[in-house]
Every structure is written in C-alpha cells, then in structure tokens.
Design a protein around this nucleic acid. Structure first.
Lengths: 249, 249
DNA sequence: TGCCGTCATCTTGTATGACAGCAGTCAAGA
DNA sequence: TCTTGACTGCTGTCATACAAGATGACGGCA
C-alpha cells in the first residue's frame, strides 16, 4: 500500500538526515560529552558536508534537547541538570509503565516468547557486568515491546528521553548493589508479563524505573562532588575533558 | 541562578527563533492548515528573512512534528492520522493526570485559589460557547498548573502535544452534548483539587481527557467521511483548502 | 604578582547567488 | 482518452561574504 516495491535507490538519503543521525549517535555513544562545543567548521570538515547541512542538523538536535545553543556562542552538547534527570526518570516511569501494561495485556504469544528470549540475553549480559552490553540488551528489551504494541508516540518519546540520559544511565548501572537489585526487579516484571498481569507488570516496572532513577541521581551527586573537588584528573567525571578533540566551554 | 539579571538588551532575538515562533503560532492558530505546503521563497518574502533562517526554523518545527517533510517536495503542515490522535490523547491523559495529581498534592494555597479563579473564567467562557475563548481559558487552566508544579518536562511535552492536536481539539469541543458532559467532569476535577485529593483529581482528569479524546475521534471520523464525500465546499472539513493562499498538495 | 583594558582572532547568524535534479503540470500527439 | 515529453517550480546543497558577539592573548599599571 505504501512505498513502491520497484523503487530504485529509495532516493539518495538527504545529507542533513545523515548528519542528524551521526551526530545523535555520537552524542548518545558518548563520543561527544556534555559541555563539548560543536564547532560548525570542524563538523563540516570531519563530515565532509557544507555548513548549511550541519546547521540544519543542529537545529533538529536542538529541538530534541540533545544540544543547547546559547546565541552567538553556538551549540554545546547538553548538560542535564539534576532536576532534569529526576524529571526524565519520572516521565519515563509513566510511559514505560503504560508500555509494559499494554504489552502484557495485548501482545501475541510470539511477541512474549521473543521477549523472553531477549530477556535471556539481557540476563547473560548483566551476568558479565559489561555495561555497554547491558545497555544494548536493555534497549533491545524495551525496543521489542515498543515494536509490538505499535504505539508510535510512546516509542518516540521514550527514545528521546533515553537519548537525553544516556550518559547518566550508563553510570547508574554500575552503582554498587544496584545490578543485583535491578535484576530482581526485572525478573518480577518479566514474570508479570508472562502471566499477562498488566497491572503488576506496570507497577513493578515503575518501581524498577524509580529505583534506577534514584541510582542515577546518586551517581549524579557523586559526580558533582567530584567535579567541585577540582581534581580534574578524575576520569569518571561526567563532564571531564572530551577525548574527541572538541573545544570545551 | 539561570540567566543574568543584569543582562543588557537580552541580545537581539535571533531571527530564526522568531520565525519558529511565528510559524508555530500560525499553524496552531489554524492560519496554515494540515496539508498546506510551506514554500520557502514565499515564507521568505512574507516574513522578510532569508531562506537560511526559514529553513533552519523549518527543521525545528519538523522535529516538533508540526510539519512533515517529504524529501524533495518540501515541508507540509502535518496531517495527523486517526491513530496519532488516539495516541496523543492517551499520552496526554497520562501526563496531565500526573500533573494534576502533583498539583493537588503540593500546590500552595495561593496557587489553588488562583486556579479556582481561572476555573471561574473557564466556566464563563464555556457558558458562552465561544470555542476560541474556551480554548484560551482551558490553556490557561493547564498552564497555571504547569507553572505551579515546576515540572519542565511534563509542561514541555504537554505543550507540544497540544500543538499537534490543536485543530482536532478545537473541533472536538463543539461535539453535541460534549460541552455539558465535560463541564461536569471538570467540576469534579476542580473539586478534587481543592480537597487536595490527588488520586481522585488524577482519575477524574483521566476520564475527562479520555472522553475528550473520544469526542475528538468522532469528529475526526466525521471529517474523513465528509472529505471522501468529495463535497469540497464543506467548510468545516479538516483539510479544506487553505485561506492563506498557500499551495496545497 | 595580579588586575584591567585593548586588540586580534574565532565563530556564529544571516543573506546571496548558484545549480543539479526530483516533482507536478500541461500541451502535443496517438 | 491516454501517453509522452518538454517546461516550470522548488528543494537540497554548496560556496561566499560579512557584521557583530565571544574568547583569548598581551602589555601596561598598581
């Protein structure tokens, strides 16, 4: 119905969209870090496109809150404030609870089986303690549910929120003791889903996200301290000097 | 804490931001209508700015989903699908419920008094049946709560969602019988707030939004029918020819 | 030694001009 | 009436240019 099967090249993808995507990924992956300035010319050279495309892409990322632009100073990778972190986790809890409730209640058996499989991978990842793998599998877990319930908006919002807290989130996973705790919480969620208990799934997932949020805030505070401590050699600092060669504030 | 009080001229506002604002308002106000093409040159001339600024503004609005861009065809004021309307009302219900719950539980007495005052204005507006006034007062009502609880994120999201459904929302208000029904629902909400019953406030507001959503969907369906009926003279059609002189699909 | 004002330099914000190439239109032709 | 091809309209990108704010270096002064 939509999209012609015989379509040739799908049309060359727009440069600006590619730029958006790559910059977004770079930020999420932590290649650029909060506070890094994004200098247009540099980006032009690195990506081999004109300033026009770069700037248009930047406007898009700005709207997503991934970068902030102070007039005449140019774009800077967003730093999130403590309050913002708290708010994001709060809203994420709401949306994800709605997501999981609906999934538990309406997903097909296949979707649930598949989720169980992903959950298995997630557990193995968690067992290794390798943070990047854990993040990846957790994303897959959520992403699968989003795909299944076909709620464009919730999916969209959750993805955007996740992007904004990618840094803190990564740090939060490694909070001592949190991995075990969250493991138990997730088990309850998975269990509720399999029993098709949407209400319980939603409630337990809310708890999970709330606790994750608290862990994130704890990390956040530690980081603030470390920063005001001035020991800029502290490599774990959220806002430490970028390795990407980009100027900083 | 944020923003320097001593700042001189606040700096001349950026052109692109002004463009964003004006276009957004124009869309929300219905001056441009869903499906209208936004032709860059035209916008340049009308607003007296260069294509550069226009295009950057468009990228921003695109990220807000207020416009959609089909590659090489350019921007078009977003048409919302039925599904999107449903999803938006769903999420709006979630967020607004959280908002009102928190307001009921934590707002100062002054804030509540003020809300009651606004509620009074809202009631008078509703009594007249003048849709634009009703919309304005309803917005004030929500906006007041958003200001009081200081939850940037929820406020931001609700505003963006509201923008996306501004057209449908306007139509929905005039659904026969809905005005009375919603009046009663709102009364319950206001009452719950004054009694500081966050739970009840949230629940009743959820009902209110859900019903509003159903009304909106009903209107939406009527519109679709009217449209496929082909009688393009039907002036109430959601997608009728724009009066703004802008080309259409 | 430490603070201040000045100047050179870097960057952004915005405007212009150009141009290739997709899209939609319309008239000529079958 | 349907098909084809030429024509025109716009978008997507690039290259340039330039004023003005932001930054950083430097030398003078206390």
């Amino acid at each position: 119905m939509t999209g012609d099967v015989l379509r040739l090249t799908e049309l060359p993808p727009l440069r600006r969209d590619q730029v958006i995507e790559r910059l977004r990924n770079a930020i999420i992956a932590g290649h650029f870090r909060p506070g890094d300035r994004l200098i247009e010319r540099e980006l032009c050279e690195r990506m081999g496109v004109s300033r026009t495309s770069i700037r248009e892409a930047l406007r898009h990322l700005e709207a997503e809150h991934l970068i902030q632009v102070e007039p005449r100073r140019g774009p800077v990778v967003s730093r999130v404030t403590r309050k913002q972190v708290a708010e994001i986790y709060e809203v994420r809890a709401l949306l994800e609870a709605a997501l999981v409730r609906r999934f538990a209640e309406t997903a097909s058996e296949n979707d649930i089986t598949e989720l169980r499989r992903i959950y298995g991978d997630l557990r193995s990842a968690r067992a290794t303690g390798e943070v990047p793998r854990i993040v990846a599998q957790t994303t897959r877990f959520t992403e699968h549910m989003m795909g299944a319930i076909e709620h464009e908006l919730i999916g969209d919002m959750l993805r955007k929120l996740a992007a904004r807290i990618s840094v803190v989130r990564t740090l939060a996973i490694a909070v001592p003791g949190r991995l075990e705790e969250s493991g138990r919480e997730l088990a309850v969620v998975m269990d509720a889903i399999e029993r098709r208990d949407g209400e319980l799934a939603a409630r337990s997932l809310t708890t999970y996200v709330q606790n994750a949020g608290e862990a994130a805030l704890r990390r956040f505070d530690e980081n603030e301290q470390a920063e005001s401590g001035g020991r800029s050699s502290s490599r774990s600092a959220l806002l430490s000097t970028s390795k990407s060669g980009v100027a900083r504030k």
